Simulated assay, not measured.
Amino acid sequence: MSTSVKAWISAFRLRTLPLALASIFLGSWLAAADNGFRWEILGLCALTTILLQILSNLANDYGDSIHGADLVKERQGPSRAVQSGKISLADMKLGMIICGVLAFISGLTLLYVAFGDLQQAFWIFLLLGLAAIAAAVTYTAGAKPYGYAGLGDISVLIFFGWVGVIGTYYLHTLQFNAILLLPATACGLLATAVLNINNIRDIASDTKAGKRSIPVRLGADRAVLYHWLLLFGAVGCALIYAILLGKGFYPLLFLGAVPALVRNGLAVSQLRRNPAIDAYLKQMALSTLLFVTMLGIGVYLAG
């Protein structure tokens, strides 16, 4: 494999993809529980989400290099493609454009398959899709990246939680169910926990670069408490949802994933100022996928 191909694969940050797919899988399981599942919707949702996540990762590499977050010596994360010189700024920008166009085409195909003839829902979801593309790019890129203002957490909650889960469910079923805000919030909070680990790791470098993430604003100790709140908040939302469903034991299967969340919380507590915390980004992403999969399967089995 050539060096350039390896550089692009590294820039795609494939370890983030399980997290991106978590909301799609959960929304699809919930749709299946209501007899509304469609394979073509799952496939196109997954493809669009993967492209959006890769776009976000490329934009993050591009934006942090421009704004300096990848240049300060205190940065503890893995080397970035632009900062290391493996990919030029111009090539990274071109890669972002290509990925954005592919995500737009995939999203349009998804909406056509889901809605058929043009209708109000099509335009609403088209706006949501454009908003997702804009959010992916402007997190760290652009003149005023919102990630540098500490707004990344709410964006993750919205797009990896509410839009991802409820939107996927609607594309399958063409129905909205308000109770799904609970599992969607649980998914979004766990995704936010992944971002929180990333930001705890980068407190020193982000502070020097002027990136005012939540951990930079709170400090490492309170950022750990915030992390526990995200984890317990997710479990609480899922538990309330399972109780309100009133369908017995199966919807509580997600509790089997709680030990993995506790393990992550304990690790973050112990490694808050240690570069080894980076390993728990992947562990948190996989724990999120396990959590939502067990929740979705449990609801499906409960019928």
Rank of each mutant, 00 (worst) to 15 (best):
L126S: 09
G43Q: 11
R80P: 02
G43R: 09
P145I: 02
Q83I: 02
Y62W: 14
G43H: 09
W123V: 13
L47F: 10
A69R: 01
E74Q: 15
Q76P: 01
N60L: 03
F104A: 15
P78G: 07
A135G: 09
A121T: 12
G129W: 07
A81G: 12
V113I: 15
L30F: 06
G63S: 11
L102W: 02
G95C: 04
L44W: 15
V113D: 05
M96K: 01
F37E: 03
I50C: 14
G77P: 13
D64H: 06
G68V: 06
W29R: 05
I97H: 06
S56A: 15
A81Q: 09
S79N: 01
Y148M: 01
N57P: 12
L127S: 14
F125G: 10
I124S: 11
L26H: 07
F122A: 08
G27A: 06
C99M: 14
A143C: 00
G116V: 13
A149Q: 12
L71M: 08
L118P: 02
I50P: 03
T140D: 12
Q83F: 03
L127D: 06
N60W: 03
L102F: 10
A143N: 04
L128I: 15
K93Q: 13
V113P: 04
D64T: 02
A103V: 07
L110P: 04
L110M: 11
A46W: 14
G63A: 09
G95H: 03
L71Y: 04
Y112P: 05
Y112A: 14
L128S: 11
I41N: 01
